[in-house]
């Protein structure tokens, strides 16, 4: 707790690891605090085709492994801890974890985002028991079964199309009467035989006996609710949820101005608090990709270095 780092980075996804690389390489003493494992959301991704320089057969984990090794090579330290609070004003700034409190002259917030949940009863209880947010992980369980996909954007429709290769029937449950997904995707989707659509509908409840086998769906226009039960022979069905992402900014509420939960920064990744920067999916931006996260991290670390120079005159 005594050591004051030059830079504390919260989150070890592409933004945090790129920041770690740049900060370490600038000889700033750097600590990366991560709650579980490196990589953030991309460890769920089986194929990374659009990161410049990614090699054939690149997966989320293989790319992250090289990100991590590179940050480590330049001296960034890493600790596994869950951040529960932060004191960002003043100097040094305090990052309060479950295990310890960490002190830094600057902080780079790179906590990323997580899939949004439906927020209905039974959702948490049946995650991994029929409810999933990861098609590449769980699609195979539903070979020959019925599957429901919640959402109407590009991700939802693309994953629904992917799931038709496994499931007997896939039904997209969408709260509006038309999809948000781009037209090219929609055209493909409407041609698939075992892909159906349930319009103006929201999931209100998920339940079952150990595994998901029942749900309640509400019509958004009439307010009428109906029960959907698993086919008797199947005994189960799957619900895949793709309704966007939510930034991991719970501990920042009231500390920084947020827009729909995302941290506002300027082009230099500066937040409204001097010495506090944000990088990657956690901030307000138009494109959330590995390449933009890495770029944010590089800018944030460089700006953190400049801030320290000025601080120490």
């Amino acid at each position: 707790m005594d050591k004051i780092y030059d830079v504390i980075i919260v989150g070890a996804g592409p933004a945090g690891l790129a920041a770690g690389l740049y900060a370490g390489r600038s000889r700033l003493s750097t600590l990366i605090v991560e709650k579980e494992k490196d990589g953030g959301q991309i460890v769920q991704t089986a194929e990374i085709d659009n990161y410049p320089g990614s090699i054939e057969g690149e997966t989320g984990p293989s790319l992250v492994e090289r990100f991590s090794a590179q940050a480590q090579k330049f001296g960034a330290e890493k600790i596994i801890d869950t951040v529960t609070d932060m004191e960002l004003e003043g100097n040094p700034k305090k990052i309060i974890g479950q295990k310890e409190t960490y002190l830094g002259k600057t902080v780079i917030l790179a906590g990323g985002a997580m899939p949004t949940k439906i927020g209905c009863p039974g959702e948490d209880e049946f995650t991994g028991k029929g409810v999933s947010y990861c098609a590449t992980c769980d699609a195979a369980f539903f070979e020959g079964f019925e599957v429901y996909v919640v959402g109407g954007g590009d991700a939802a429709v693309e994953e629904a199309m992917h799931l038709t290769k496994f499931a007997r029937k896939v039904t997209v449950i969408h709260r509006r009467d038309e999809l948000r997904a781009v037209k090219a995707i929609q055209e493909k989707a409407f041609k698939i035989e075992n892909l159906e659509f349930m319009w103006n509908s929201v999931v209100k409840e998920l339940s079952g006996d150990g595994l998901l086998s029942r749900m309640v769906v509400e019509d958004t226009k009439s307010g009428e609710q109906r029960e959907i039960l698993a086919d008797e022979e199947d005994g189960i069905f799957g619900v895949f949820v793709f309704i966007g992402y939510k930034p991991n900014t719970g501990v920042l509420e009231g500390k920084l101005p947020l827009e729909n939960g995302y941290v506002k920064t300027d082009d230099d990744m500066k937040t409204t608090i001097p010495g506090v920067f944000a990088a990657g999916d956690i901030r307000v931006k138009s494109l959330r990709q590995v390449v933009t996260a890495a770029a944010d991290g590089a800018i944030a670390a460089t700006q953190a270095g400049k801030y320290i120079e000025n601080l120490e005159g």
Binding site: T127, G128, K129, G130, V131, S132, C134, C137, D138, A140, F141, E143, G210, L211, L212, I236, G238
Partner: peptide, 19 residues
Amino acid sequence: NTSKARRLAISQKVLGLPT
């Protein structure tokens, strides 16, 4: 490997990975 033991996984109430 549940890809080769799907029924067994379901019998163990495993329907999501990793578990």
